[in-house]
Amino acid sequence: MTTTIAKTGSVDAMELLTVHLRIKRYNPEVDTKPHWEEFEVQQKASDTVLNALHNIKWTVDGTLSFRRSCAHGVCGSDAMVINGENKLSCVNLISDVGTDLVIEPIRGLPVIKDLIVDMEPFFAQYRSVIPYLIAEDDPGYKERYQSQEDRARYDDTTKCILCACCTTSCPVYWANGEYVGPAAIVNAHRFIFDSRDQGTERRLDILNQKSGVWRCRTSFNCTEACPRGIKVTQAIEEVKRAILYDRV
């Protein structure tokens, strides 16, 4: 019995490639503005961009700073702009993104150091949509039932890992930081369409304000950027319809 491991099994994939990285750097303790630095490291085609960044940090320049934790796309720490697109460094292989990489911090949030941005505004916007279950009735000491259809209704938006890839790819968000942004709307959607929740009106009121869903111009950047494959723009459209037609 054999499986050919397309990405690591063949001899070619084990071969070391020279990866060239151009990284936008900024150290607030020294620099007045960001500048570019170039690095070259040897990686396998099956390595991730995160592997390459670690390689730099651990063998070339220990000052290079970025966030990361899980290293397999579930914690949402390492959103960055890789060759012009918002991506998680840990789920993009060199074989997918190539050996010439331009890496910058995500846009629209203040840069603190190198690839690290201030996530507070993003989380504040998340908190503003009341992102928790509101259910006043007391179900007593037992589970509430929920049909498989009702559960499926909000499945897609439960996947969000709050990485900010979507929000920081949104041209409207870049232009106006007041806009709550797609990630916050995704997290509101997760409760608005949960049959157990009773907070819909409050959330729809918040999203009907001028910082809410009507700023969205349906340009799909956010959907393309989402590493969890969430249909972000569709979720926003569903919330818009819920506001217009007063039903979920």
Partner: peptide, 11 residues
């Protein structure tokens, strides 16, 4: 040390 939602329980 991490934003709460980055914790490894999420994995």
């Amino acid at each position: 040390k991490l934003y709460p939602t980055r914790s490894h329980t999420g994995a």
